[in-house]
Nucleic acid binder design. Sequence first.
DNA 1: TTAGGGTTAG
Length: 678
Amino acid sequence: MYSFSRAPWPKSLIAICKDKRSLSQVHALMILTGIFATGDSNGQLIASYAKSGDIISARNVFEESLQRGVSTWNALIIAYSRKDSPLEAINLYRRMILEGIRPDSSTFTVTLKACAGLLDLKTGEEIRSHAIDLGYKNDVFVGSSVLNLYAKCGKMDEAVRVFDGMPKRDLVSWTTIITGYVQSGRSLEAVNIYRRMQKEGIQGDEIVMVGLFQSCANLGDPKIGLSVHGYMIRRDLPMDVVVQTSLIDMYAKNGLLNLAFRVFEKMSYRNVVSWSALISGFAQNGYAGEALELLIEMQSCGFKPDVVSLVSALVACSHIGLLKLGKSVHGYILRRLELDRVSATAVIDMYSKCGSLSSARALFDRVNMRDLISWNAIIASYGVHGGGREALSIFLQMKDTKLRPDHATFASLLSAFSHSGLVEEGLQWFKLMVTEYKIQPHEKHYACVVDLLARAGRVEEAHELIQSMVDEPGIALWVALLAGCRNKGKLDFGQKVAEKVLQLKPDDPGIYALVSNVFAAARNWDEVARVRKVMKNTGMKKVPGYSVVEVNGRLHAFLMEDKSHPQHEKIVAMLEWLDQEMRKMGYVPKTEFVLHDLEEEVKQRMLCNHSERLAIAFGLLNTGPGTRLLITKNLRVCGDCHAATKFISKIVDREIVVRDVKRFHHFKDGFCSCGDYW
DNA sequence: TTAGGGTTAG
C-alpha cells in the first residue's frame, strides 16, 4: 500500500506516468484522497497531460483547480507555447496578471517567446518592462528571451544593446545573438561574434554550429564551414537531422554538391526538409535533371513534397525550360497545397523562363498579396522577353503601391531596357535610381547600362562610364563592352578591350571564346591562336554548345555537330531543304561567327550543325503543323542562327521561341521579338 | 522549494 503521510508524493508519482491511462488513474486517486484540491501538484499534472498530447485534460485540470499557484499557470502557458498556440499563452498571461498572480522568470521567458513567434514587439516590450519591474532585469533566461524577441522582430541594434548589457551570459545567449545576426542577413557579424565567444573561452555546441553553417551558406565561403564540420567530427558533437540539413545547405550553396551529397547519404534519419535542401542545391547549381529525379525518389521513399520542395522543382523546370512539368507542378500546388506568395512567384518565374510570358502575367494579375519580390519577378520577366516598355509600365504601376523599389527592381528594369534597346530610358532611370531613390549602383547596374550603351554601338560612352566608377570595375563590365564591340563590328576598339579582358585572367571559357571571336572577326588569326594557347595552358575548354527542345513534355538535347541521334539523317535532310528555301529568300551565311580559320565552305557547313538548328529541325519533324517550338540554349544564339531562324519561322509558318543564356527570342513570320537588337 | 523556461535546418 502507498503511504499518504508525506505531502510531495503525487508529483513524483505523476512524473513517472508515461502514458495517459496511468496518468488518469493517478489523477483519480488524487481527487479521491483530496490531495489534488489542497496541494499545488496540479501544475505537474497539467504538464504531464500536455506532454502526453492531451491539452484538453490539461486545460480541465487547470480550470478545476481550486488553488492555482504560479507553477499552475506556468504549466498551462508552457503547454500552449509548445502546442504552437502563442496567442493562447499570451491570453493566459494577461488573465494571470488580472487575477493578481505574480509571474516568475519562467512565465516571462515563455510569454516573450510567444511574442517573438508572433512578431508582436509591442506586447513583448510590455512584458519586458513588467519583468524589469519585478526584478528580473539580470535574469539570463529573461535576457536571452528579450534578445530573441528583438532579433526576430528585426531590431538587431536593440538586441545587441540588450546583449551587451547582460551581466551574465550563457551559451544560449550567445547562440541567440549569433542566429539573430544570421537571420537579419548580417552573416559576417555572426562569425565575428562567434570568434568573440571563443576568445571568452566558451565552447560551442551543435546549435551554434548550425548558425555558423548558415552564415557560410549566405557568405558563399565554405572555409569556416569546412573547419567547423571537422571540429564537430573531432569533438564527436551530436549530428542530428537539423545539423546535417544545415550542412547540406551550406555545401550546396557553395557549389560543393559532392560534399552535400555525402552528408545526405550518411544520414540515418531524413525528412522533407533534408530532401528539399538537397533538391534545391542541385536545382540552384544548374543540375535540373538530377533535382527532378531526386524529387521523384523522395516520393518513392514515402515523403510528400511540400511547398518548398516544389519551389525547388519549379526552379529546376525553369532552368531547363520544361514547361509541361512546370505546369503540372503548378497544378499540384493548387490542388494539394496552397499557392502562397513565394510559390506564386516561383510559378510566375517558371512560366516566364519556359517562354510563356502570357501565363506569367495572367498569374501575376491574379495574385492578391503582391510583395516586392513578385513585382521584381514580373518586371524581370518582361525584361528577358524584350518587353522593355511593358516592364517600365509595370514599374510605374508598382510606384503607386506603398512598396519601394530596391536594387533588384532596378537591376531588372535596367536589364529590360538593355534587352529592348531603350537607351535613353535606361540612362534616365539609372540617374533617377541614384538621385531620387538613393540607391547606390552596384556593379550589376553598371553592367546593364554598359551593356545598353555597348549594344547600341555607343562603346566610347560605355567605356567612359566604366572609367567613372569609384570601385574597380569587374571583368563582367569589360566583357559587356567587348560583346558590344563584337556585335557592332567595332573591331579596332574591340581588340583593345579584348587585351584588357585577357589581363584580368578570366576563368570562364565562354569569355575566352568571346575574346577569340573578336580577334577572329578581325581576321587576326595570330591572336586567335594565342588565346587558344592561353586556354590550353590553363586547362580550359570551350563549353560545348547544346540546345534542348521540348517535344510532348520530354526534353531532347542536341550537341553541336551531333551525329549520334537516331533521326540524324532525317534532321540533315530537313536542314538541307530549309537551307535551300532560305537561300531562295536571300539568306547569306554569316561565317564570321565560326571561330576557326577554315575554308568558307567548311564554315558554312559548321553553321548548319549548330545545336539550335538540329533542335529546331528535330522539333519540326516531331510536332504537328502550327505547334510552337521552345528551344533552350546554354550559350547565346549566334548571329547566323538568329538570321536563319527568322527565315525558318516564315518558311514553316511556326512560332519558334529560343531561350538563350541571356534572354528570349520569339521568332514569327520572319521576324524576331528582339528586333535584332541584342 | 523537486522542475519547469530561452537558442537550430530547406
